[in-house]
Design a protein around this nucleic acid. Structure first.
Lengths: 124, 124
DNA sequence: GGCATAATTAACCTATAGGTTAAATACATC
DNA sequence: GATGTATTTAACCTATAGGTTAATTATGCC
């Protein structure tokens, strides 16, 4: 029953079919049939994906005769970008190197490490 | 059975508890017990969340006596930021306005619109 | 060795995600 | 109003997510 906006957005993006649909919509609006074309799954499955995207506010739907064209609404993606930006300093190479060398010094006289001991827990 | 990196990353981020754990790790490494403290869920539940984050490459785990301290590995978040950046021009206000006014002109003589007709499909 | 602490694993439960096929709805056209 | 096309809804299935409690593993300390 998670319903916060970011969770809904991330959940919607956690599917390659849905991300492909968003990518397709960058080049303009499209009907459901057009969106379904590249995929091997059924129309109802596409319909469900579109509903997920719509509920996440990532697409808007039109209404023209029997067509329900979709177009991109990228607003929530700004939230995603903004959220990720908070972590920028943690993914830069310089930070990683600093972090690692600091950690090596700190752990010089302890007998543990990252990753190395983790290996032995591997199973199956 | 989705296993592409971005999907795994987004799925890991689609949970507020896990995002809170990542936020906590910005201020330094922490033991499982420390990470669990702010939440009302059980330790095994936290353990599972950490496993999800670890498999997504978002945290690394250490090994010190009976503690398994976690620390942030933000690499995948750069992929998220990069992915979202592709959509930047679609979320900027100027683009939205241009898009909307173009669309209004285009649809002047058609009898459909976005959102308005969508309302009537509401049910429950 | 025995006890306390930290964390994981096992076994289980329920809800939801993502897919299916078949039926229903909406609209345009003849 | 019957037919064809676009799309959704209904009913169903299976796998997974996220949670639980109880048991197990790993370690430090006495």
């Amino acid at each position: 029953m998670i319903s916060d906006r970011l969770s809904v957005t991330f959940a919607a993006l956690a599917d390659p079919t849905r991300r492909a649909i968003l990518a397709r919509l960058m080049s303009g609006e499209a009907s459901v049939t057009q969106l379904a074309a590249p995929f091997e799954i059924s129309m109802p499955a596409i319909s469900k994906h579109l509903k997920v995207l719509e509920r996440a506010g990532l697409i808007a739907r039109g209404h023209e005769a029997q067509w329900r064209p979709c177009r991109l609404k990228a607003g929530p993606l700004k939230d995603v970008a903004d959220w990720a930006e908070h972590y920028r300093r943690y993914w830069t190479e310089s930070f990683d190197r600093l972090d690692n060398s600091l950690r090596e010094v700190q752990n010089r006289e302890k007998k543990h490490g990252y990753g190395k001991h983790g290996e032995k827990r591997k199973r199956a």
